[in-house]
Design a protein around this nucleic acid. Structure first.
Lengths: 98, 98
DNA sequence: TCACTATATCATGATACAATGATACATAAT
DNA sequence: ATTATGTATCATTGTATCATGATATAGTGA
């Protein structure tokens, strides 16, 4: 019970970064993506992006499969997609209010 | 668009702590609660708990109303409740798998 | 083998977050 | 006014997270 909150908090922390949210949304939209494409899209330094990917991998949110030189990432954890949908709902609600 | 991920990440960070998840779930279950009761329930030092409450208040997740000496907190952001439900789903799914 | 490309990891400094004890503030009772 | 109770804030210290540049690894082609 106590352990539950600990694990879920860890999971949330793995997602609680603007770049990582953007990566997840991108994978939801595109299905899969390699690192170079993400890099151009997000305009991030290679090592910075790689660190964020590593964090998402460690949390079990995404998986990467190597294809030649490139590594293609895709969403692994369906719960992450549901969270992003939840966040989008909030966004829409706020737009209506404004 | 970029700003969206930034705001949502801030919101997630405010929730991404085991104690704060526990507080939210507690408020969902009990409706409202004062600080002393939470303190006993969670076995936290007063200042530590107060800091977590402050963080949730700042993020707009909860509100407190003073009643005499006590302050009663309750959930303000319905999105937070939805997030907790999402997390509980994950939990059940994992239990079934095991 | 060598050079090249794509990605990962490491070490570091900067910044943010967490827990704690001390102190302050607000309210109530005497 | 004083004292007691409930809650909030502050200062400090330890720990975690972030971005970065440098270096390492994996795969490809000459």
């Amino acid at each position: 019970m106590e352990d539950f909150y600990l694990r879920q908090a860890e999971w949330l922390k793995a997602l609680a970064h603007p770049v990582r949210l953007c990566i997840i949304q991108g994978l939801m939209d595109k299905g899969s993506c390699n690192v170079t494409d993400m890099q151009e899209c997000l305009k991030l330094q290679q090592s910075t992006l790689s660190m964020h990917l590593q964090k998402l991998r460690a949390a079990g949110v995404i998986t990467g499969t190597r294809v030649g030189l490139e590594v293609n990432y895709r969403l692994k954890d369906p719960q992450a997609a549901r969270l992003l949908e939840l966040l989008q709902q909030e966004h829409k609600a706020q737009e209506v209010i404004e």
